[in-house]
Amino acid sequence: MSLSVPGQEGTRPPLTRRRRRGKREGHPLSPYLYLLPFMALFAVFVVYPVGYGLWVSLHRWDLLAETRPFVGLEYYRNLFDPETPQSQFFWNSMKNTGFFTLVSVPLLIGTALGLALLLHRPIFGRALFRSVFFLPGILTVSVMGILWRWMFDNQIGLVNAVRSDLFGLPPVPFLSSEGLAWVPVIVGTVWWTIGFNMTLYLAALGNISPSYYEAADIDGATSWAKFRFITWPLLGPVTLFVFVTTVLASFQLFGQTLVITGGGPNRTTQSVMQYITEEAFANNQFSSASAMAFLFGLAMLVFTYLQFRIMARDARGGEEG
């Protein structure tokens, strides 16, 4: 039965259709309203500071001075002039940070993968082990730093106590010896951060189909062959992710050396981040420090770009899925 009421038939269906579409699409400006709060903060605290920092690095910025004259690339040039103390200290800190990254990254990835492989297959107390290995990661950096400074105390730290009481060896002054001062920093960092990478590897190992290993078993593959030709290649994407995030974290070394060694002895463990903040906040050289920050940011660009690419790939994957 048709409800053909004269005068309504022509108006009603279009009305509902229009209303429905109107509701579904919403007001054309509403997406921008949703974005407004974030974009406002983003503009003020992310975009603007980048430009402002560049401006500061090109001017002689003094907290108390009335004028801030334009000096061009002077502060950048200073960093490439071996005569200036800035270039000496900056490149020294770059060398230290580079050394730390070079040593710590393979260690941080290797130990995390090793632990994940140990924990992956069923074992009694698996969840407990996982919690124990993750536990140090929840400590805040100053707690971790004080703890490892105590562990490696020159005279009576736990490491020297074990050396002298159990092995009768003389104490090693780790904290005040150039070179050796890296030991507490690196050991402490491995202890502190291993749980994060281990967790990522455990998740990735769980995603490898057991059928690969079953096929390999039929072919009589050794466990090394299984690792080399199945596990390692299939872990490729995680390893890339872990590598990039670990490199970036190591480059931005700050708290560990600040608390454990204070950057010493003799600035041999001073990180770039520590030196830049020293130049800014202790020496009040904001322009010089800004120039260093940009140069350092540029040095990290390869890795920040890789990180961006990984996330971009995931973002596109999310759209397809």
């Binding site: 500071p49 402002y52 970036l248 931005q252």
Partner: peptide, 9 residues
């Protein structure tokens, strides 16, 4: 953009 770049400004 690493944090150190925006820290000072």
């Amino acid at each position: 953009v690493p944090g150190i770049v925006t820290l000072i400004p």
